[in-house]
Simulated scan of single mutants.
Amino acid sequence: MEGLLRNLYQERASDPFTKGVFLVERTPGQESFTDFFDAVIVIICEEEGAAKIKHYNCSGVSAALHIVTERELFYWVLSGTNRKMLDWLFRGKILFNRNEYITNLKLRLSEFPKEDRLQKTGIEFAKLIRRFEDGKALFNLHHYLDAFNHILHALHHLARLSVIEKGLYPEVTVWRQVREVDPETYKLYHELIVGDEGIEKRLELLMIAIEFAIRSKIHIGKAHLSAVMNKKAGLWSYDELASSREVQDYVIDLEILLQYLVENGQVKRVEEPSKTSGVFHLRYTF
């Protein structure tokens, strides 16, 4: 198959802006992993505006060609917003590897440097707070199935936090990882999915356990935001903080994260007088 598909990437491989090319082949029983194509070819390049997707039929072999930029790839790695691409990266066979680019990228993921872990932790913790608090609110409104969905997602973020805390990158098969590194979180997931209690009772008990788990991880969850805010002396307005480049990967959940940290005594909220009597601007600091 590789020889048949060579024409799709050969010209790109000779381009000095191309960093690497890898191939993912369809596996019986796992066809969705390649979006039902026989093969997926991913080309990583450094030039902006190069991203595109093309579909081909090569003598009866269906193929998808994805051209992605380095910036996109690193965003997906940190944010986890394109887990399909990360799965392809882990599974893929390297076809072209300029200056060991893909090899070094995989090594970086396996070693998961401290600065990457810090940002990834901030992202997952912010999403965890959002999902858990929304799930709790829906539970209080007796919308148990909707609450179940949010609590399930909260458990996924809690699971990824546990994996990151161990210095590992959370893979697509995260529960396989969690079963090894954090049996307690795995047990919570198991109880939610297959527990004998009714859904209301399962959610009630699990929310207590998850809330305790969140509090036990608050020191790592706040670390990235703390590092960002401590770069500037003095107080931050919310607008200043939301405009910071470092928090853009979780800015959609920044407000609830910030208020959660305030409510739990981790962030100080300071009132400053405005032009209107009795109205104060709110500023924040660690």
Rank of each mutant, 00 (worst) to 15 (best):
L158V: 10
G135M: 06
E184R: 14
L188S: 05
I214H: 07
I199P: 00
T173F: 10
W88P: 03
L282C: 02
V194T: 15
T81H: 14
G49Q: 06
R26L: 03
H55D: 10
Q248L: 08
I43K: 06
G49E: 08
S14E: 12
Y250T: 04
E272Q: 06
A227N: 05
A242Q: 04
L4W: 03
L107Q: 10
L89S: 05
Y9L: 10
F286I: 02
L258C: 00
K222C: 04
F90P: 04
N264W: 09
T27K: 15
A50G: 15
E2W: 05
G198E: 11
F36Y: 15
L155W: 08
K275F: 05
L4C: 05
V267E: 03
A233F: 01
E46Y: 14
V42P: 05
M207A: 05
F17S: 15
V267G: 08
C58F: 01
G92K: 00
N264A: 02
R91Y: 02
Q10L: 07
K232A: 02
L192T: 06
T285Y: 00
H150P: 01
F132L: 14
Q248W: 01
L89Q: 07
F74I: 12
S277V: 10
K275C: 01
D35F: 14
K54E: 13
A51C: 09
L118S: 08
L258Q: 04
K217Q: 08
L128C: 10
M207W: 07
V40K: 13
R91F: 01
S244L: 10
L155T: 06
H281E: 01
Q248Y: 04
L158Q: 10
V77G: 00
R71Y: 06
V174F: 10
I193R: 14
G265S: 11
I208S: 13
I53Q: 10
H55W: 08
L4A: 14
Y144L: 11
R269Q: 13
R283I: 03
I164T: 03
K217G: 08
